[in-house]
Design a protein around this nucleic acid. Structure first.
Lengths: 191, 191
DNA sequence: GTCTATACTACGATAGAC
DNA sequence: GTCTATCGTAGTATAGAC
């Protein structure tokens, strides 16, 4: 891997683990096996490097979600698949994490990819739910956009609860609870 | 207010705004209007001060939640009241925020009050839902513990979405979506 | 109790040699 | 492109005077 590439990847890992304030240029260089001068040759500084890292993580996250949304099954099944996807729950969400970083949230440029990711996620979920209603799988009374936001929030909140408890159990409960609530709104296929 | 008191309050504010890594003894002293020597006279250092601050915020949070849970109304109404409580959404949750701080999560002593808060919250919500079932207000098929975790997660995730979007709108959608899902499980009173 | 002085490390970056 | 030197500021604390 090239040096800029290694720097970006190291930054991604560190942002995930320690956030923006907790990530120093020094730490990035060490993890990337690059020197001081090397880093500042390829990037203007910490903010520029962080932006590259955040953008990449955001794209990755959106692609990962897409895999599940475009899978087989009814609307509820696809949402359930998304919520049950294998996740490294205790590590938390590399994107959601950044919302707790005042320096990221305060900087329009750094916040944008984070905002985009959640908008994209919510939008795709809304589409899945709307489609489910159109196919007669799902109660038409359900508000797709609100419900989509609920699903994404359960996921993000599940990470929070899991890290607080140092256990995946609350995450599992939260997601299964949401799936059950959603499943209750499924319609029987009329034949 | 006494000096130790002012130091704790300043630490609470800073932990909320900037997290553990982002909060320096210097900043605490300045906000509290206390000198270097003064702070180290009353507290051994940053971790001890943080512990006092986190404990206080955790207690405050639990008390605030209790107000809603012990209010009037059906189970669903009380949960809805809790979710709709006035909140400074864009500031985020002072407790949930700490789960993104690796130094807090890694330290058993600092993490404990955070874990306690969410356990207490989930436990009380579980009780409210169980009571609702016992009173015939709520579908007995609903799993109270899972659903309680879902509700707390929606709240925490709602903060994340709101901060990402720099808008309270996703928070509102997520909570209203959850309330609607829950309301659909209410039973009509038989008379 | 509070203040000032002092200490050492890390942060975040620039300069200039190679 | 990468390295080393250097820089000024902040982090986190201790020591000792008042």
């Amino acid at each position: 891997m090239s040096t800029p590439e290694r720097l970006i990847e190291s930054t991604r890992e560190l942002l995930w683990e320690r956030g923006y304030v907790g990530t120093s240029p020094r730490a990035i260089q060490q993890r990337a096996g690059a020197g001081q001068g090397s880093m500042y040759h390829h990037f203007k500084g910490k903010p520029e490097l962080a932006l590259a890292a955040i953008r990449r993580s955001a794209e990755e996250r959106q692609a990962l979600a897409e895999e599940r949304f475009s899978g087989p099954g009814t609307a509820v099944q696809r949402v359930a698949d998304y919520l049950r996807r294998e996740r490294d729950v205790l590590r938390g969400c590399p994107i959601g994490r950044l919302t707790q970083d005042p320096d990221v949230v305060a900087d329009q440029t750094l916040r944008q990819p984070v905002a985009d990711t959640f908008e994209h996620l919510t939008g795709r979920l809304t589409a899945v739910l709307t489609e489910g209603q159109a196919l007669g799988q799902l109660d038409p009374e359900l508000d797709p956009a609100d419900t989509a936001a609920t699903v994404v929030a359960v996921l993000q909140g599940g990470y929070v609860l899991a890290r607080a408890a140092d256990s995946v159990e609350p995450f599992r409960r939260a997601t299964e609870g949401a799936i059950a609530l959603l499943a209750a709104r499924e319609l029987r296929p009329r034949r």
